[in-house]
Amino acid sequence: MSEMLKRTLGRALASARTSARMTMTDVVNTRIFGSRQKLWRLETGQGPYKWSEVQALADIYRVDLETRSQWVDWAMRAGESGWWENYSTAVNNFRFGLYIELEQAASAITVCSGDVIHGLAQTERYHRAVVQLDPTKEDADTTEQFVSLRAEREAVTLHRATPVRLNLVLSESALCFNIGGEAVMREQLAHLRELDGRAHVEVSVLLFSAGGHAAMRGPYTLLQFDDPDVPDVVYIESLDGGRFIEDAKVVQRFIANATLLSASAVPIEEWINEQHRVA
């Protein structure tokens, strides 16, 4: 999990500098460490990390031996490749790679609204149909990379020893768009129903008939962690690879929003039964 380690190490370095009451300029002026730009890259989790540079910062901040040892270990392991790097076409930017690692490490994931069912809950045929909606991904090799990546994401996240607590709050539009054809959608709905039957998964629907809802400004994914050293994160996907929100006060607003949405949605089973009754 190299990107997670980079992110963790960067946050630790920034925190240590703050505790030492030093600015970036102060660090550079010690002449022990290189440039302000290099320090900024290390603190923002971009690296690359060299153990000798981390040692130098440990000297400047006068951290204890245990902390120094942890930093060096993180720096050396941060150079290792993440499993997702085998899918270079499908994961073509740093931010999506980091998202995958956060997804894998999260203890709880809440996905709110959106017109497309989240990747962790997609069937293979539905996912192929979604990929093929993008004309830039039409060649067979690219499609297969996306399909394989999605399957491995599901395996490492939903089928690990301690499965993630997954809460999918779907817009009704995600269930009504005929993606891939009727057979594909029937299979996808059956899969959502099966997921909802698992102890650690909840799937619910925001009904058209209920009117507007609190996620109409845009869908988002909330990732939460049991590790107190890893703060909760909001991920907002976009064509350029998405963006992260880590400010604790802002994240709390998203948590409150997700709670409100969950309370407004109906269980997927109830939605399916209503469709059958109307039909």
Results as ranks from 00 to 15, higher is better:
129 A>L: 11
279 A>I: 10
209 S>N: 07
55 Q>A: 14
220 Y>E: 03
80 E>S: 11
110 T>H: 06
87 Y>H: 13
258 A>N: 09
226 D>C: 02
161 A>F: 15
192 L>H: 05
190 A>N: 08
92 N>V: 09
169 V>Q: 02
16 A>D: 02
220 Y>P: 03
86 N>V: 07
67 T>Y: 05
6 K>S: 06
139 D>F: 14
48 P>W: 12
241 G>P: 01
203 V>P: 06
230 V>F: 05
141 D>T: 12
182 E>P: 02
70 Q>F: 03
19 S>A: 11
187 E>G: 06
102 L>P: 01
120 L>N: 10
229 D>P: 01
175 L>K: 06
210 A>T: 13
46 Q>W: 09
121 A>F: 15
74 W>G: 00
65 L>D: 14
172 E>C: 00
87 Y>C: 08
148 S>P: 00
106 A>G: 00
247 D>C: 03
128 R>E: 13
233 V>F: 00
245 I>V: 15
38 K>W: 01
243 R>G: 00
254 F>A: 05
216 M>P: 00
167 N>A: 03
103 E>T: 07
214 A>F: 07
81 S>W: 04
181 G>Q: 08
244 F>T: 02
181 G>D: 09
261 L>Y: 05
250 V>K: 10
193 R>T: 10
49 Y>E: 02
60 I>Q: 02
202 E>R: 13
264 S>I: 01
270 E>A: 09
38 K>C: 02
72 V>I: 15
197 G>R: 12
150 R>I: 03
20 A>W: 06
121 A>D: 10
64 D>C: 05
116 V>A: 13
205 V>C: 12
204 S>H: 03
154 E>H: 07
272 I>F: 13
200 H>E: 14
159 H>G: 00
152 E>A: 06
272 I>V: 13
72 V>Y: 03
16 A>Y: 01
199 A>K: 10
42 L>Q: 01
240 D>L: 14
267 P>S: 15
239 L>K: 09
40 W>L: 06
52 S>T: 11
23 T>M: 05
107 S>H: 11
18 T>L: 06
221 T>G: 02
124 E>H: 12
162 T>Q: 13
220 Y>H: 05
36 R>F: 01
179 I>C: 03
2 S>N: 12
201 V>A: 07
58 A>E: 07
209 S>L: 01
207 L>D: 04
246 E>K: 03
217 R>H: 14
